[in-house]
Design a protein around this nucleic acid. Structure first.
Length: 850
DNA sequence: ATAGGGTTAG
């Protein structure tokens, strides 16, 4: 609080100054004050005035202190003056203005209060400054009370004051109040072009593009007010955010006609408008035609190209800027870094960052945050850490940092660490933050990080914690999407439904499509595809993701016919299938044994829809043919691939070999995988199982040794049971559950009973070379069997049992569950990594296609 | 008054 310091100069005692001032009269004091260039000089003269009692010089004294940038000294003089005193309000205004300019907003309000307590009335100069401060402080309460004072003191007919009121309400997020004041101005006939600009800015900043444009339309139409450059620059961003260029083009034309286009600000705003509408050719025309370009013009072009994915053009322009020696600023660098980051090229982003530092440009928060997102998408932990270090240095070197910047950086860091598989580090950062520091994004990146990282349980727990602890911090659409993603992973139908209810109770209008699609995905993957259908049918707007999510749901449930119906419907409404859509269609066929249909779609996708099959599509076909036992056809198809087969293709063939016990082809596929340096733990397990099935124990041992040597560990199988109180997790051979003994007892009893019914353990699904008896035991410790026993223990009779497994369900478990479903009072709904298995009285919905 | 940044779906 610079302005509260009340300083009286201490007596000055050097001989020289005494000698210098001893003969100076009042007039000389005034003259000297005008020449003061430092606080020290002003203080000397001040001292002299006090000693000599030259009271007439006080206004000059205040002026001198203001000129020497010593507002607190000026204030201390000012405060001793008593009204009426000519020109004093002027000096209060000068001080208030300097406080506004230095960003000392609270001081502005203090000065405003103090001047009134000392008996001065603010005037039409004072109020705009005070409103500016209220606006920047986003303090509606204080702004409104000053507005009331304006009305009481009869300033509501002053156009400057009223314009400031409009802007203040806008900054406080009260566009309705702003509009009221604006309308009153129009009624009084005192509105000017600045008033129109102000109300347009209010709407533009609150994201109300329609109203912003409507105001522009009225202004130029019914009211015949000539817009100036500011009007255009205010309204153009709103045209862009409508996503269609109709209004923007009109205003572009208007700017040319009105001769406002020479203004570099207008040109830049037009470029930006076209760029945001994705019309880079138009933007380029404007850019080429501009006489004066500045760095903003270039940057708008660079980011425009970068954001529509024409990154080569963006980089080209960037190179041009360097050639033409345009001074690159921090925005330019950040935009290029962000461009690389968005395309997942984290390493190039880092490289540009290094160049930036060599060029002597200082990075800011935006640069660092962009860089972090690049590291995140590249999974580059080491570079992420380097950036972390830089961020710490950067924060420490900063004075007067905006706290909003800190949290931005921290959010970026948390996101980077979760995406670089360091969820623990991320969580430590998250936990070390004070509750009031965290914002919605902080929670969302942490929840989303867990959800995507396979720790979906943690994600849901954190989400519920957020709901419980932070009534003031509401989850936004992103948060909801992340939480639903976690439910989808776990197959947590109950939690998913709760979140669905939460969505219905709270308004998530702006995010309807995203949240809706996540709900479809959640219901599909949690075993209730019919609920997914209801959500789908109730969506007002659907996009390709909505359709494919629903198809995935039908596909996972083996309801291939319905999936294909959805596909037809999707094309009927005019949506064009893309690579992902076809992948989903092919999987639906594969899971339902619709081999001919799958072949037809695969063969026609390029011809009919122009989608060239990629390795994923070939992998899916290998899966489809392989499951059906047509292993040679699968191999032949792989051989016709126009590109090198990727690991997933060989894995598909290998798993088909596992199902059909083809050792020779399996070895071939495994060899191909080794050649590709693929570190797929699943492929070793598959090959080992193939050998075990053929009773080639030496080879089983060899694989086991190989895995040991290369340090590849089998990803532990893991199953989740959905219960009333949430999710319970079981790993292979898990004995950590408090009711573990009971669980194993139940399981042993079940196995005994189904053995009597004819169940024979399929020991080839056990990984190790041990005698048959023991292998049986290992099989019984598979996580899905433990989960089933626990579910039987805790589920009320008649209620369905829902289990989700992280890997594919093992063949033995599948058989066992089929038997078990005959002797228990529950249906078993098991979801594994690829599809649903709905066991009901001894039969499974997958009909052998799994 | 114009340009850049962190979180979401198949």
């Amino acid at each position: 609080m610079l302005y509260n310091i009340s300083l009286s100069p201490k007596p000055f005692t050097t001989k020289i100054t005494k000698a210098f001032f001893s003969t100076t009269p009042t007039a000389t004091a005034t003259l000297l004050l005008k020449q003061c260039r430092s606080i020290l000089q002003a203080k000397l003269v001040h001292q002299h005035i006090l000693v000599r009692g030259l009271t007439h010089s006080v206004t000059d004294l205040i002026a001198a202190y203001v000129a020497c940038n010593a507002p607190s000294q000026a204030l201390s003089v000012l405060q001793r003056l008593v009204p009426p005193c000519s020109s004093t309000v002027f000096w209060w205004n000068v001080l208030i203005r300097s406080a506004v300019r230095s960003g000392l907003l609270e001081d502005v309000l203090c000065l405003y209060g103090r001047m009134q307590r000392l008996g001065w009335k603010p005037d039409h100069y004072t109020y705009p400054f005070v409103f500016k401060a209220c606006g920047e402080l986003h303090s509606f309460r204080r702004g409104a009370s000053v507005h009331a004072a304006v009305c009481v003191n009869g300033f509501e007919s002053n156009v400057f004051v009223c314009n400031a009121v409009v802007a203040m309400y806008g900054r406080c997020g009260a566009s309705g109040e702003a509009r009221k004041v604006f309308d009153e101005m129009l009624e009084r006939g005192i509105g000017d072009v600045v008033s129109w600009n102000s109300i347009m800015a209010v709407y533009a900043q609150s994201g109300d593009s329609k109203n912003a444009i409507e105001m522009f339309d009225w202004m130029t139409g019914d009211f015949h007010v000539r817009p100036d450059a500011v009007s255009l620059v205010n309204v153009l961003p709103s045209c862009a955010s409508l996503g269609e260029p109709k209004w923007g083009m009109q205003i572009h034309g208007y700017a040319i006609k009105a001769g406002l286009f020479e203004d570099v600000f207008v040109g830049n705003a037009v470029i930006d408008m076209y760029a945001k509408c994705g019309m880079m050719d138009e933007a380029n025309n404007v850019f080429d035609g501009m006489k004066d370009k500045d760095v903003v013009s270039w940057n708008a072009m660079v980011t425009g190209y970068s954001q529509i994915g024409r990154f080569e053009n963006a980089i080209g322009l960037f190179e041009n800027m360097r050639e033409e020696k345009i001074e690159l600023n921090v925005v330019t660098w950040s935009a290029v870094i962000a461009g690389y980051a968005q395309r997942g090229h984290g390493y190039q982003a880092l490289d540009v960052f290094r160049q930036m530092k060599t060029c002597g440009s200082e990075p800011n928060v935006v640069t660092l945050v962009s860089l972090l997102s690049g590291c995140a998408s590249a999974g580059a932990l080491i570079h992420g850490r380097e950036t972390h270090g830089y961020a710490i240095k950067w924060i420490l070197n900063l004075d007067g940092n905006d706290p909003g910047n800190d949290i931005m950086l921290i959010n970026g860091l948390i996101d980077m660490y979760t995406k670089c598989k360091s969820a623990k580090v991320a969580r430590m950062m998250f936990d070390s933050l004070a509750a009031e520091t965290k914002n919605v994004v902080t929670w969302t990146v942490m929840i989303g990080g867990y959800a995507q990282h396979g720790e979906a349980n943690e994600a849901l727990e954190l989400f519920y914690q957020m709901l419980r602890q932070h009534c003031s911090l509401k989850p936004n659409g992103f948060t909801i999407s992340c939480a639903l993603m976690a439910c989808a992973r776990l197959g947590a139908l109950r939690s998913g439904k709760q979140i669905h209810a939460y969505v219905l109770r709270n308004q998530y209008d702006s995010m309807k499509l995203f949240v809706g699609n996540c709900l479809i995905d959640m219901y599909s993957k949690s075993g209730d595809v019919d609920a997914a259908r209801v959500v789908f049918d109730n969506l007002q707007h659907r996009n390709d993701v909505s359709w494919t999510s629903l198809m995935t749901g039908y596909g996972m449930h083996g309801r291939g016919e319905e999936a294909l119906q959805v596909f037809d419907e999707m094309r009927r409404v005019g949506l064009v299938p893309d690579a992902v859509t076809f992948l989903v269609v092919l999987y639906a066929c594969s899971h339902s044994g619709m081999i001919d249909e799958g072949m037809t779609y695969f063969n026609g996708m390029c011809k009919d829809s122009g989608v060239v099959p990629g390795p994923e599509h070939y992998a899916c076909m290998a899966d489809l043919l392989g499951r059906a036992g047509r292993l040679d056809d699968a191999l032949n198809l792989i051989k016709t691939m126009p590109m090198e087969p990727t690991p997933i293709v060989w894995v598909a063939l290998l798993s088909a070999c596992r199902i059909h016990g083809n050792v020779e082809l399996g070895e071939y596929a495994a060899d191909q995988l080794t050649e590709l340096d693929s570190e797929n733990d699943g492929s070793y397990t598959l090959l080992s199982n193939i050998y075990a099935n053929a009773k080639r124990w030496k080879d089983v041992a060899r694989i086991r040794l190989l895995m040991k040597h290369t340090g590849i560990k089998k990803r532990p199988g893991c199953s989740w049971v959905q219960g009333k109180k949430g999710t319970t997790t079981f790993f292979v051979g898990d004995r950590t559950h408090p009711q573990s003994d009971k669980i194993y007892d139940i399981l042993a009893d079940l196995i005994k009973r189904i053995k009597d019914m004819g169940y024979v353990p399929e020991t080839s699904f056990a990984l190790h070379d041990v005698d048959d008896e023991e292998k049986g035991d290992l099989l019984f410790e598979h996580s899905e069997k433990l989960a089933l026993a626990y579910a039987i223990l805790t589920t009320p009779p008649g209620a369905p049992i829902r289990i989700t497994k992280n890997l594919r369900v093992c063949g033995d478990c599948h058989t066992a569950m089929n038997y078990i479903s005959m002797i228990i009072e529950h249906e078993i709904i098991l979801r594994d990594s690829s599809r649903f298995h709905h066991f009901k009285k001894g039969s499974c919905s997958c009909r052998g296609y799994w």
